[in-house]
Amino acid sequence: MGRGSLVARILGGAAGLLLATGLYLGLVVVPPDAVQGDVQRIMYVHVPSIVTAYIAFFVVFCTSILYLWKRDLRLDAVAVSSAEIGVVFTGITLATGMIWGKPTWGVWWTWDARLTLTAILFTIYVGYLMLRAFAEEPLAAARYGAVLAILGFLDIPLNHLAVYWWRTLHQPSSILRPGGPSVASAMLLPLAMNFAGLILLFAYFLVERVRLERIRHRTAEVRLTRGRRG
């Protein structure tokens, strides 16, 4: 039970290698930004973090829909697990964004549409995790949780469009934008490395977190049968 499957170890190892390379490229090799200087290097952790969080919540979205349809608790286990990891990556995005904002914008935080919707995203899934953790009726909680997760996901497309629909302090997306990335090609490589690294790290976390959920389900099963036997 201790070390995890071969798949998990390969995922974790590959993530570590990619992130180490991306870190070295982003912090040492790549030149600083013409306008912002070295502080722009925060982009190499900030942008991949939020994309990984979006992927994690997309996994929650899909498995929650499938759970409501199939009522298979294994799907629900993936949803809870992915939500937890998504919250971690959203937290990293918020923290690194604040640290990037202070030396460039001049403020740690401001309530523009992009920042507000990201804070709402974080709160929705923290609420989801609380619902799951404190629930007395696990099956009912799984059902309500799935509905909350599906509705909460709508925040993400809204957040992506927010910088085009409303005036914000936050700049529009640099990567997923009409007309292609607005990042110099030399800067794209560390970005891509960290993208790949964080996505693999997410996969590694997910495999391990789902394993925890399986152990918990099995424990509940054993308790139940033992209780029946008296």
Binding site: D33, A34, V35, M43, S173, S182, V183
Partner: peptide
Amino acid sequence: MAKHSEEYKPP
């Protein structure tokens, strides 16, 4: 507050 663009390039 300073608003900057989404363009990043080396000096």
